[in-house]
Amino acid sequence: IGLRKAKVALTGAAPIPPRIVQFFRTLGVPLVEVYGLTETSGMATGQRLDHLLPGSVGEAAAGTEARLGDQGELLVRGDIVFEGYFRNPEATAGVLRDGWLHTGDVAVIEAGQVRIVDRLKDIMITAGGKNLSPSEIENTVKGSAFIKECIVVADGRRYPSALIQIDAETVGKWAEENRIAFTHFRSLAEHERVRELVAAEIEQANSQLAPVAQLKRFHLLVKELDHDDDEVTATMKVRRASIAKKYAAEIEALYKPERQAEPA
């Protein structure tokens, strides 16, 4: 793939499924996971080629310290940390305290290796009092080539469920190979065979998750998420609040008796 002479390759910015990392490493690409923010001037932690712990983003970079604060928030200190936001001392004070940058990310540190759990503001608490990381669930589900987006619903609910957007290209090819007729995205998403396909993919993803994090039901979106509809940002990050409001009826249906919702 043109990377035969690569000494090291970095992946960051967003979580990557372990199987993708393993794929590139099997090809001989020395891929390592790293973590950083704009406020850390780039990489703050990173894996070493001689110590690759799956699912982690490695240890603190040279000259950098990392520890956990309240609620498991990752704190970073070192020369890489910025001095503050331009002409915004209040925002600066909100993230810089005693030299430590409060990243807003929940993490676990084991034997010096950092594993990012989720954004602190995104952690969900079920009706049973269980803390869930929606990103962990979503990224596991999106490990399927047939699923483009997964938006988990769990806060204050009895169990996790999700809104699912199929990948139009891969599902479309699958449908053609299986002689399933469709004319547009909606007709494809509403096809019973496609629903069965997605259910099987979610079942596979559930097998990789703790029982409390497994999706019990899902709803297939009949349109692709769109920036113009305020469903995603310009960089295609999901706007949870906007989607929760727009698809409130579909979400409520997931918690009605099983015959009124789509089982996963």
Rank of each mutant, 00 (worst) to 15 (best):
Leu188Tyr: 12
Leu215Gln: 10
Val108Ile: 15
Pro54Leu: 10
Glu176Phe: 12
Leu225Pro: 10
Arg119Cys: 03
Glu73Leu: 13
Ile1Pro: 10
Val29Trp: 13
Ala62Cys: 05
Ala66Asp: 02
Ala111Met: 11
Lys130Tyr: 04
Ala175His: 03
Lys121Asn: 03
Gly63Gln: 02
Ile1His: 09
Leu27Lys: 09
Ile123Thr: 13
Ile80Leu: 00
Leu74Cys: 09
Arg87Ala: 03
Val57Leu: 05
Gly46Trp: 04
Gly72Thr: 06
Val8Asp: 01
Ala162His: 14
Leu188His: 13
Leu37Trp: 07
Arg19Leu: 08
Pro18Met: 12
Arg239Met: 00
Gly28Val: 04
Glu33Pro: 07
Leu27Asn: 09
Leu3Pro: 14
Lys130Ser: 08
Ala249Pro: 05
Ala264Ile: 03
Met43His: 01
Ile251Cys: 14
Arg19Phe: 06
Ile137Trp: 00
Leu37Ser: 09
Gly12Phe: 14
Arg157Phe: 14
Pro89Glu: 10
Gly84Trp: 12
Leu254Gly: 15
Leu225Cys: 09
Tyr35Ala: 10
Met43Asp: 00
Asp167Val: 09
Asp98Phe: 12
Val81Ala: 02
Glu177Leu: 03
Val153Arg: 07
Lys173Phe: 14
Val108Lys: 14
Thr40Phe: 06
His219Ala: 14
Ile202Pro: 02
Ile20Gln: 02
Asp70Ile: 12
Val81Ile: 10
Asp155Ser: 01
Ile20Thr: 00
Gly12Lys: 11
